[in-house]
Design a protein around this nucleic acid. Sequence first.
DNA 1: GTTGCAATTGGCACTAAGTGCCAATAAAGT
DNA 2: ACTTTATTGGCACTTAGTGCCAATTGCAAC
Lengths: 207, 207
Amino acid sequence: MADAHDTADAQESKGLRERKQARVRAELIEAAMRLFLRQGFDETTVDQIAEAAEVSRRTLFRYFQTKGDILMAWTRGTSDFLEAALQARPRRETPLQSLREIFTELAEQLASNNVDAYAVALMIDRDPSLRQYSLQKHAEWEDRLAAVFIERFGASASSEQRAWLLARIGVASFRTALDQWIAVQGRTAMRSHLIETFALLDRSLVS
Amino acid sequence: MADAHDTADAQESKGLRERKQARVRAELIEAAMRLFLRQGFDETTVDQIAEAAEVSRRTLFRYFQTKGDILMAWTRGTSDFLEAALQARPRRETPLQSLREIFTELAEQLASNNVDAYAVALMIDRDPSLRQYSLQKHAEWEDRLAAVFIERFGASASSEQRAWLLARIGVASFRTALDQWIAVQGRTAMRSHLIETFALLDRSLVS
DNA sequence: GTTGCAATTGGCACTAAGTGCCAATAAAGT
DNA sequence: ACTTTATTGGCACTTAGTGCCAATTGCAAC
């Protein structure tokens, strides 16, 4: 997976070369998302994206391995964000509390974004050929979160098992909240759906 | 995963045409799996599969929409199996108990299969380009299990939420047990890893 | 069993994703 | 200014997947 975020790293000029690359990358993502949202994913060819971003088709594939990776890159940073956020939670919290908090933070981060997260979420939800990419992204989240938990719990077999289970339950809860959010057409804040889902988690697992 | 689908439909001769189709279909799956296991998924072309199954490339694509679908078809029936198994569980069980039981049943079903489920699980685990297919399959399981739960709980928003959450937790537990199974190289029965994981689930969520 | 119908098949040509290779170019270091 | 190195774009190639049409094959009714 590629790296590099879109917004602002004006702090450090790391040379013309790197700045140019970052610009091209951002240009590609922006052009691609505009086209995806307008015409759909399958209906958009990489040639169109390349042309819109004013690079050659060949260069596009140097920045992104697949067309889907461009879509993924848009939410790029969410994995890093979640990992860092989990790492930052105090150890006294239960793992589930920590998970609830970091996903809430994520939701707020996305809400304050300039691009309409709901529109993208809806597009991914509707188009069956896009589902695989969100599944992949969520799997990546699980990997990263599990790694943090393993670091905390130690690396014994049963600790690892617990870490994976918790990471997956966290992501499962997020996905469930996301479903609800889409079901109400984004009218209620994602945040409230997350709180509700995690509350349900506590209750559901007892009965 | 394996369910050898309809190994014997000898009871009903539905005409030569249909029998021929079933034969071609089985032939394609068998040829594909042989090639996938021998050379890997990406290294196997659909032309090779078509040739091995003695049909034209064009015909192959009439039986399966994508190359990946052939791989998925090998495990076709697991979704049906899980759905039916969950439906058959007594209502007095807690949902999590039911889930533990049906996944254990699935594991035993797979263990008694003629094809080596571990070899396939390992292949899918190793090859990154194959991960998407297992993710898709697990998502399908979630869909089916959630549907059964919704049928049981009623179709209110919060019931649906609970249904999805439970379905996903079930699948998450299965996946975690599967990881452990692969980690010990299939030496211990999948069944025991499942029991362990579900036990961990109860304990983990409290603390 | 012959004739007519509908489904299945295979060949061909096409689009689009993704890759290897190489020559041209633009940045970085000296 | 000169050399080195990374980036670029063009081209040709492979493979997945699709539309179209003509040939074949199973099926049924006569």
